[in-house]
């Protein structure tokens, strides 16, 4: 469904991605792991069309969308949902307004929108919080509101940028349970960036390891701990000694 061919990204004189080639078939669940500032978030933003590749091609459903204008990309983006690392909840809307925003912008009438928002809020465990402002939510609640907004329009592809960063272990488990249940029901493709490898592998089936802007490893999530690449093994085990540079 989504494919990157030899993608490179340079911003402000810095090389953020180099020679990344990756194909994510429809319905797949891919995890993206790697050290901080390795280029993981840039990778998913390229997939969402938010950062244009400096080199290489971005192909969605067989169509090369590289270099498309914002207007031309709009129908493509309408099929993608995204959870941002910093939640990206709009300060000027309450929780219900945030969650219903994608559908409201597509012209869904208020009487049809209300039940959809309530159903999504119930699904993520935020029933009763619809009139709260984003500033009144805890980190976990913000993540769940972000997930509800990313998935309310039933997108074919959902990109999760650090869905559990900063959350306690119990809330982390709840978030991954929620993502599993959502994707089991919808069958949507998922790409999730996370530094929490243990939690991530309970949700995804395949993993790529990003290191210094390059894909250093790609393989099944189940055998990640036994990956042949010492970089991956050290990252997964958390060992201090190894080839990974701090």
């Amino acid at each position: 469904m989504i494919e990157l061919r030899d993608v490179g990204v340079e911003l402000g004189g810095a090389t953020l991605l180099r020679g990344v080639s990756l194909a994510v078939p429809a319905g797949a669940r891919l995890g993206v792991i790697g050290p901080a500032a390795a280029g993981k978030s840039v990778l998913v933003k390229v997939m969402a069309g938010l950062i244009p590749p400096t080199t290489g091609r971005l192909i969605i459903d067989g169509t090369d969308v590289t270099g498309w204008s914002e207007e031309k990309l709009a129908p493509v983006r309408a099929r993608i949902g995204m959870l941002f690392q910093n939640y990206a909840l709009y300060d000027f809307l309450d929780v219900a307004g945030n969650v219903g925003f994608p559908l409201a912008q597509r012209g869904l009438a208020a009487d049809a929108l209300g039940p959809r928002v309530l159903e999504r809020l119930r699904a993520v465990g935020l029933a009763g919080s619809e009139f709260k402002q984003p500033s009144q939510l805890s980190g976990g609640m913000k993540k769940r509101a972000g997930i509800a907004r990313a998935t309310i329009a039933a997108p074919e592809l959902v990109l999760y940028d650090e869905p559990t960063a900063g959350l306690d272990p119990v809330t982390t488990s709840k978030v991954y349970d929620l993502l599993r249940a959502d994707h089991d029901a919808s069958g949507a493709t998922a790409v999730a960036v996370s530094s929490d490898v243990a939690g991530l592998v309970t949700f995804v089936t395949d993993v790529v390891f990003v290191y210094r802007g390059q894909l250093a490893y790609q393989g099944p999530a189940a055998t990640l701990a036994d990956a042949p690449d010492p970089l991956v093994r050290q990252f997964v085990s958390g060992a201090l000694d190894g080839p990974l540079e701090a």
């Binding site: 933003k45 969402a48 938010l50 914002e70 990309l73 709009a74 129908p75 983006r77 309408a78 993608i80 949902g81 995204m82 941002f84 690392q85 910093n86 939640y87 990206a88 909840l89 709009y90 300060d91 925003f101 994608p102 912008q105």
Partner: peptide, 11 residues
């Protein structure tokens, strides 16, 4: 806080 990217992601 990526709210502008959030808008762009929603087309």
């Amino acid at each position: 806080t990526e709210q502008l990217d959030g808008l762009r992601a929603l087309a």
